[in-house]
Simulated scan of single mutants.
Amino acid sequence: MTDDSLPELARISDVHEVRPALRDQLTDCWTEVTNSGGAAGFPFPPVDHEQVAPVVDELLGSLDPRRSRLVTAAFGGVLAGWVVLRRDPHRLVEHWGTVHHLQTRPGLRGRGVGSALMRELREVARDELGLEQLHLAARGGEGLEDFYGRLGWREVGRWPGALRLAPDDTRDEVLMLLDAL
């Protein structure tokens, strides 16, 4: 028996595991998130499928079983959200990973998708990649510090005024750490 209220999670470590339908869903999700004002890598909406697709292809092409993972969440085969984890290959910092592009489809927010993705990512980091800590940078002014804080992350610094979204909209970049994997 399955619980339809919980997303189905998948771990992907190689571009060859990504079917064209998933690639299109990733692109559509990223487009929707960006166009709804989400802080997901395209700071100046609107964007369209043609702009986002090459960036998705680049991201998928960089997947490597030793250094990165894409984690997806779906309801009934429909992508609800996704996140990427990367490990730097340099020995000095190979014990930690960086979280990129956590996003959930706007119409599916409030169903625990983001939290489920981050919990799964924590397991992947610890159990599959042997990482000791995770880092991320979040756009200030979005309430993301509270979201990540509820999942055990802590703020370790800020780059004040680092992000200029418009002449009258400058935000901090918030640096966060999860070190109890």
Rank of each mutant, 00 (worst) to 15 (best):
E132I: 04
V93F: 11
M118E: 13
V93A: 05
V124A: 14
Q103A: 15
L136E: 01
R109T: 05
E128C: 08
A125Q: 09
A125S: 08
L121M: 09
R119S: 14
E128Y: 05
E120R: 06
G112C: 03
H95L: 03
L121G: 05
R119A: 15
R119E: 10
L129C: 07
R109A: 08
V93D: 04
H100P: 06
E123A: 15
A138V: 04
V124N: 13
L131E: 07
L136Y: 01
E94F: 08
R122T: 15
W96S: 00
L136A: 00
H101M: 01
G107C: 04
A125D: 09
A125N: 03
T104H: 14
R119Q: 14
V124I: 14
V113D: 07
P106T: 11
H100G: 04
E128Q: 04
V99Q: 10
L117E: 15
E94C: 05
A138F: 00
Q103C: 13
R122L: 11
T104A: 15
V113H: 00
L108T: 01
H100Y: 12
G110F: 04
A138I: 02
L129D: 12
E128H: 04
A137R: 04
G97P: 00
V124W: 12
V99S: 09
L131S: 09
E94Y: 06
L129V: 04
E120Q: 10
T104N: 14
L134D: 05
E123F: 15
L117K: 12
W96C: 00
Q133P: 07
L102W: 05
H95A: 00
L102M: 02
L108F: 14
E123G: 15
H101D: 13
E94W: 02
Q103T: 07
W96G: 01
R122A: 15
P106K: 08
W96E: 01
L136C: 06
E132G: 13
S115I: 15
G97F: 08
V113G: 04
H135A: 02
L117W: 14
A125T: 03
Q103M: 11
G97A: 11
M118A: 13
R111D: 02
L108N: 02
M118G: 12
G107Q: 09
R109Y: 06
H135N: 04
T104L: 11
H95F: 00
P106L: 03
A125G: 12
L108K: 03
L117S: 10
T98I: 04
H95T: 01
R122V: 07
E120A: 12
E132R: 08
L102F: 02
H135D: 01
R105P: 09
S115P: 13
P106I: 08
L108E: 09
E123D: 15
L117V: 10
V113A: 03
V99M: 12
G114R: 01
